[in-house]
């Protein structure tokens, strides 16, 4: 299968101090194929967010090559093929949920009865039907993150980038969000790069887990998650899941020693 996202020896240095440089990503190489769900896991500060920003073309790498849908990432962004979900939902408090969700249509001068309908439908799909006209402060953290995902998806992107989107959400809500996310990614047919520091989250969601080590951030290995789909919450208690989680943990802790 073709690579939808391909990183080859991506290296990132940040300026540090007066004329020092800090190597944050060291020759990161991996790819994601069409429709795949790939998680990136690693200790805090290993450059996961930086990596995602490079794929989103919010940052330019110091060296290495990035291809998104076979193009330079800035082209993919300009064609609005890439959706981004941050850890904070970033819903604007002065806009209703629906107004927040159709923001990308508004920016693209695409507001129409049709696009509004799409925003409403997506909201209904994630259980936010009836909350369209509420302001964000009335929503729980989980509901806000659902709205943020809908906002990222409403332009029909082919790629969804998520940076610890459920980091601040309680465990029970998070498990429900996992199921909803898998559903929506399948229905919308997106390729997903998902940053997390939770091992069970990475294993449960992914087709593959990219494990990173830190100082400098680098790929320690990629673990294939061959659990059947669709997955339900019972998968979490079965032996294969536990085995994979253990493998991820071992690979992670190699870097910590």
């Amino acid at each position: 299968m073709e690579s939808v996202i391909a990183l080859d020896a991506v290296t990132m240095e940040f300026r540090a101090g007066r004329d020092g440089r800090r190597l944050v990503l060291d020759r990161v190489t991996f790819d994601a194929r069409a429709g795949e769900f790939v998680s990136i896991i690693g200790p805090s500060g290993c450059g996961k967010s930086t990596l995602l920003r490079i794929v989103a073309s919010l940052l330019q790498p110091t060296a290495g090559s990035v291809r998104v849908l076979g193009k330079p990432p800035e082209e993919a962004k300009a064609q609005r093929r890439v959706g981004f979900v941050f850890q904070d939902s970033l819903l604007f408090p002065w806009r209703t949920v629906l107004e927040n969700v159709w923001l990308p249509f508004e920016i693209g001068h695409q507001l129409s009865a049709q696009t509004r309908q799409r925003a409403v439908q997506l909201l209904e799909m994630v259980g936010l039907g009836g909350f369209e006209h509420e302001y964000p402060y009335k929503l729980s953290g989980g509901m806000r993150q659902r709205a943020a995902i809908v906002r990222a998806l409403c332009l029909n992107p082919q790629i969804l980038l998520m940076d610890e989107p459920f980091g601040a959400i309680d465990e029970l809500t998070r498990e429900r969000l996992h199921l909803e996310l898998l559903d929506i990614c399948r229905l919308e047919n997106v390729t997903t790069l998902f940053v997390t520091h939770s091992i069970p989250e990475a294993v449960f969601l992914s087709d593959r887990v990219v494990v990173m080590h830190t100082s400098p951030g680098r790929v320690a290995g990629v673990i294939d998650v061959d659990l059947p789909r669709p997955r339900d919450n019972n998968v979490r208690f079965a032996a294969p899941f536990q085995g994979l989680a253990f493998a991820v943990k071992n690979l992670l802790s190699e870097g910590a020693s």
Binding site: L58, K77, R80, V82, F84, F86, D88, I107, G108
Partner: peptide, 19 residues
């Protein structure tokens, strides 16, 4: 991050100001 979000939607400078 709010600016990055608008960047992902290819918002123009005046849209960033207004929105």
């Amino acid at each position: 991050q709010a600016l990055e979000l608008l960047d992902m939607f290819s918002a123009s400078k005046s849209q960033v100001f207004r929105l």
